[in-house]
């Protein structure tokens, strides 16, 4: 119940600090999954589709670049560039989500064979520790991507309505930071799931 208004600059700093502390809690949350992966898989990993993994990683990386461009644009008052770039971010984020669902959750969703020339996922959550950790990590990350997509949609809407200005665009900044954070998590999840250790037959 503040009786006096907080200056915009001060409010931004507080929001920024709160947001970073939130990221810190998320780091520990994802960290616990990371620990589970190394404790349960050790020096092994299940066979995952390498092409799909690399493409998905790049899709997310490019979306992060687009998000950076969108944020920089709105911070400097370029609304057109903001709109174009944030749309690209949204589409790429959706593609990433779709790729995870098809190429890693494929078996759970009842898919078979190949989609666009790449074999769909063949692991189920019940497949011992390999299936469990895979679904836990990708699921937690995908949920954050989904939340990010909603966040991006709202940011786009607000930006187009004119709520975000050169002086006051913390909403866009928060959205960008969140999206980069989602990318940051994937930076560590990608090698943990796809690259580290030697492949074992999970069945």
């Amino acid at each position: 119940m503040s009786s006096h208004a907080i200056p915009l600059k001060e409010a931004t700093i507080r929001n920024r600090q709160g947001l970073w502390l939130f990221f810190l809690t998320e780091v520990f949350l994802f960290g616990s999954f990371f620990v589970l992966r190394f404790s349960l898989w050790g020096d092994t990993r299940p066979e995952l589709e390498q092409t799909a993994g690399l493409i998905a990683t790049f899709v997310l990386l490019v979306s992060s670049l687009a998000m950076n461009r969108a944020e920089v644009a709105i911070a400097h008052g370029d609304k057109t560039k903001f709109r174009n770039n944030i749309l690209v971010t949204f589409v790429l984020g959706a593609i990433f989500l779709g790729m995870i669902l098809v190429y890693e959750w494929g078996a759970l969703l009842g898919l078979h064979g190949e989609v666009l020339g790449i074999p769909v996922g063949h692991i189920l959550p019940g497949d011992g520790v390999y299936g469990s950790v895979l679904y836990l990590m990708t699921g937690a990350h995908a949920l954050h991507v989904l939340g990010g997509l909603v966040f991006i949609a709202i940011t786009l809407f607000k930006g187009m309505r004119g709520d975000l200005t050169v002086k006051d665009h913390f909403f866009a900044e928060a959205c960008a930071l969140y999206w980069h954070f989602v990318d940051l998590v994937w930076v560590f999840f990608y090698p943990a799931l796809y690259l580290i250790g030697h492949v074992v037959d999970i069945h």
């Binding site: 502390l21 810190l24 809690t25 998320e26 780091v27 520990f28 949350l29 994802f30 960290g31 616990s32 999954f33 589970l36 469990s132 836990l136 937690a140």
Partner: peptide, 14 residues
């Protein structure tokens, strides 16, 4: 709380 509680959350989810 910031360093510890999320770990309990993640473990609980598993």
């Amino acid at each position: 709380v910031i360093g510890g509680t999320p770990v309990l959350g993640g473990t609980g989810l598993a």
